[in-house]
Design a binder for these strands. Structure first.
Lengths: 112, 112
DNA sequence: CTGATACTGTTCCATAAGGCTAAGTATCAG
DNA sequence: CTGATACTTAGCCTTATGGAACAGTATCAG
């Protein structure tokens, strides 16, 4: 549960930048290399790489290197954590304690 | 559209802190004064107030002062923006095969 | 009127975030 | 082998963030 909060910190932080959200959006369409991902942005590559590292650190994307090329893919499961949090909030304000209960249970299962 | 992105920046940024998410969670149960909200946290009040300001700046909460007491309420419409973004991503992902096809085609055209 | 309460404003501090350049490493193409 | 490509590493710089202390203002309770 504590872990869940720390994860959310990283995820929300990662998504709080338009460049990184754009990367997530792009990767939703399929894997891409760092170079391809960086192309649309007017930014030096090392700067862009930081964004990639932030996204990877938050677990939102995974990367692997083949030859000179690092390929990035999205990790949808992590985005689902945001969805979970939102549902949690919805459950709170709708006064549906049962949904909150359900959420907590699901979360435990995911961890296991 | 540009405005939407800037809003998301602020919203995600605001939610990237456990104290602030806790405040959002608390306010989901109903309005509360700054003092009530601050009570659970081991933090000086001016420091806590910064979090309130961040949340208000992001539009996630609204506040009003009556006498000495500032009362905070949640603004659920803003949280809906997160939901929208998430749905966008889901739409992208679910349309993946079509769009990937489309992307590849476009990409070939661009290279040519 | 006086004191306690509930913020508010100001200033300071340490660290993190987001950008840059310059130089380095590792492939791949020829 | 050589050069180009695709990152990577390492600094450096500026601003933002999250915390603190301390002093101030404005109510409200008595």
């Amino acid at each position: 549960m504590e872990q869940y909060q720390t994860q959310l910190d990283g995820i929300f932080q990662a998504l709080a930048d338009p460049t990184r959200r754009a990367v997530v959006g792009r990767l939703g369409r399929g894997p891409a290399s760092v170079g391809e991902l960086a192309a649309p942005f007017d930014m030096a590559l090392p700067s862009f790489m930081k964004h990639i590292h932030v996204l990877e650190g938050a677990g939102l994307i995974r990367t692997s290197k083949a030859g000179r090329v690092r390929t990035c893919t999205i990790d949808r499961a992590r985005l689902a954590a945001v969805d979970s949090w939102l549902n949690e909030q919805r459950a709170i304000w709708e006064g549906r304690t049962d949904r909150l209960e359900q959420f907590v249970t699901q979360n435990k299962e995911q961890k296991a």
